[in-house]
Simulated scan of single mutants.
Amino acid sequence: MAGRSTFELDARGYLGVREQLALLSLPPQMRRRLLNNVSKRVRSMSRKRVRDQQNLDGSPFEARKGAGKGKKKMEAGLAKLMQVTRVSPDEAVLGWKNALTSWVAAQQHNGVSERRTSAQMKRWNKVPDGLAATEKQAKRLRRLGFKVRQEGKKSLTRPSVAWIQEHVNYAKAGLLIRILDDEKAEGSGAQSWEITLPKRQFIGVSTERDTGLLLNQVLQQILNSPR
């Protein structure tokens, strides 16, 4: 089923009696292989939705304010980082290992409307290697007037590109760029922003029936393959 920012799969809930018996006859490592393969196919389907800018039901993503090619990069980055985070003979989870990335994905998938303050924007944790903002993002944030209160300094300052890459997550940098870009026309110096993101439901499978069909297709391939 589709979770808040994950796709959670338990094959027992989607197969008919005959297929269920066939599944139970498989050794644990083969059941694990089944769930891993299905989850990876769902990942491919989810990534394709991002490329096509389509929701689970086939409808197009709602256009962003000031939409353009650059606006697609956040979902593309999230889709690239999606992976099978847990798999066992009984269940599998497709999502993100990094909690912050998973949170950003949930905001994109479910939509959000909330107010963020400048004080909140200043509280960052060091970003793990491989998930930091890109140099291009960091430079864009500087151009948009992104400021923080750095250690040892009394007033807000514009951080360096290196500081941004060390302290700002790739996905969250994309969100910040959108916020600052959208608010720039409304005047600088704002102390809070209303963040409104429409739903972009790209994670998972469109219906339970489609999940069952996909499971059965991969199950038959495993049953008919040499062991």
Rank of each mutant, 00 (worst) to 15 (best):
S5A: 15
S5P: 06
L9N: 06
A11G: 02
A11H: 02
Y14N: 01
Y14A: 06
A22C: 10
L26T: 09
R32E: 14
N36W: 11
S39F: 08
R43D: 06
R43A: 14
R43T: 10
S46C: 08
R49M: 04
V50K: 10
D52P: 06
Q54T: 13
Q54H: 05
Q54K: 09
G58D: 09
G58Y: 06
G66N: 09
G68Q: 01
K73I: 10
K73C: 00
M74G: 02
E75P: 00
A76N: 04
L78Y: 10
K80F: 03
M82H: 04
Q83P: 01
V84W: 02
R86E: 14
R86Q: 14
E91L: 14
E91C: 06
A92H: 03
A92D: 09
L94K: 01
N98T: 01
S102I: 00
Q108W: 07
H109K: 03
G111N: 14
V112N: 08
S113K: 12
E114H: 09
T117R: 07
S118D: 09
A119C: 02
A132C: 10
A133D: 05
T134A: 08
Q137Y: 01
A138W: 06
R140S: 13
R142L: 04
R149C: 03
G152N: 08
L156W: 14
L156A: 13
P159R: 00
V161G: 06
A162G: 04
A162V: 05
W163Y: 15
N169Q: 12
A171C: 09
K172F: 07
A173M: 08
L175P: 00
I179H: 02
L180M: 11
L180Q: 02
L180W: 09
E194Q: 15
P198H: 09
R200M: 05
G204H: 01
G204P: 04
T211S: 07
G212C: 14
Q221K: 13
I222L: 15
R227Y: 12
